[in-house]
Amino acid sequence: MNFINLIDYAGTFAFAISGIRLASAKKFDWFGAYVVGLVTAIGGGTTRDLLLNVTPFWMLQSSYLIVTGLALLSVILFGKYLIRLNNTFFIFDAIGLGLFVVVGIERSLDAGFPFWVAIVMGMITGSVGGITRDMLINELPLIFRKDIYALACVIGGLVFWGCSRMDMSPTFTQLFSALSVIITRVLAVKYHISLPVLKGHDDQ
């Protein structure tokens, strides 16, 4: 198993936890929580693969379904500790976001697409699962709020590009890119950094 596969599984686990954690807050049953966790984990990658005209990754390996199951088991066994931690959802969501941006970029470059497409696909891989998750639990998706979310994915993509131009090793490039996304999300939330809200005629 290479490093990018480890990142992919870690991102799957983190995003699945974030989805299952929110599902538990909404009083979903175990199967419903598993579905929400799975959609969160594979939604972005599935969209990416369809756009790249390749078979969705989870249809080639059942391991992603198993990783989501392990995430559900973790919440069942340690749920009372996770639920007490108000920042649990945010932490796992930020980690999953950063890791999936890297996976999306790598998959796109491996498919022969230019770097600007890879950055877009990194953003899609990181954000679409969260959008679907929020829609399933009847919440306004994070990407449509003031939060720095999709922009954090773009920043991670630019860091990846910059590291590649400096001929850094693939492992360090992937780590720095993922960390840049996570740090951007953390700093934006901690210091309440957000994009301006687009005002309608009624607000002017």
Results as ranks from 00 to 15, higher is better:
Leu6Cys: 12
Arg165Gln: 11
Leu50Val: 13
Arg21Trp: 15
Thr88Val: 10
Ile155Trp: 01
Val181Tyr: 13
Leu82His: 01
Gly11Val: 09
Leu60Thr: 15
Gln61Val: 05
Asp29Val: 13
Asn2Thr: 11
Gly32Val: 15
Leu158Asn: 01
Phe113Cys: 06
Tyr34Cys: 12
Phe92Arg: 00
Ile76Pro: 01
Phe28Pro: 14
Phe28Ile: 15
Val101Ser: 00
Ile17Tyr: 03
Leu158Cys: 08
Ser108Thr: 15
Leu151Ala: 09
Tyr9Thr: 06
Arg145Gln: 12
Phe15Lys: 11
Ala10Phe: 10
Ile76Val: 10
His201Trp: 13
His192Ala: 13
Ile155Tyr: 00
Asn86Tyr: 08
Ser18Gln: 12
His201Gln: 11
Gly79Pro: 05
Arg145Leu: 02
Phe90Asn: 02
Ile20Arg: 15
Gly126Lys: 07
Met1His: 09
Val54Cys: 00
Ile148Pro: 03
Asn53Ser: 15
Thr47Met: 14
Thr171Ala: 09
Val159Phe: 09
Leu99Asp: 12
His192Lys: 15
Asn2Trp: 03
Asp167Phe: 12
Asn86His: 15
Val75Ile: 14
Ile91Phe: 13
Lys80Leu: 00
Ile124Asn: 11
Val75Gly: 04
Ser108Cys: 11
Asp203Ser: 10
Leu195Asn: 03
Thr173Gly: 12
Ser24Glu: 07
Ser177Gln: 11
Gln174Asn: 11
Thr55His: 09
Gly156Ala: 05
Ile4Glu: 11
Ile105Gln: 01
Leu175Asn: 10
Asp93Glu: 02
Tyr81Asn: 04
Thr88Tyr: 11
Gly162Phe: 09
Leu6Pro: 00
Ser63Asn: 15
Thr12Met: 06
Ala118Leu: 08
Glu106Val: 12
Thr12Phe: 13
Arg133His: 07
Glu139Asn: 12
Trp161Lys: 07
Thr40Tyr: 01
Lys199Leu: 11
Lys80Gln: 09
Phe172Pro: 01
Phe78His: 02
Leu6Val: 14
Val103Cys: 07
Thr47Glu: 03
Lys146Met: 00
Asp202Asn: 09
Ser63Arg: 09
Leu51Gln: 01
Gly79His: 07
Ala111Asp: 11
Lys80Asn: 06
Val120Glu: 04
Val102Gln: 00
Phe3Ile: 14
Asp29Ser: 14
Val197Phe: 02
Asp110Lys: 06
Arg145Thr: 15
Ser180Val: 06
His192Cys: 13
Leu6Lys: 10
Met123Cys: 13
Gly156Asn: 01
Asn138Ile: 10
Ala150Ile: 01
Ala94Asn: 03
Arg185Glu: 02
Gly162Leu: 15
Gln174Arg: 07
Lys190Pro: 08
Ile83Phe: 09
Leu65Asn: 07
Leu99Tyr: 04
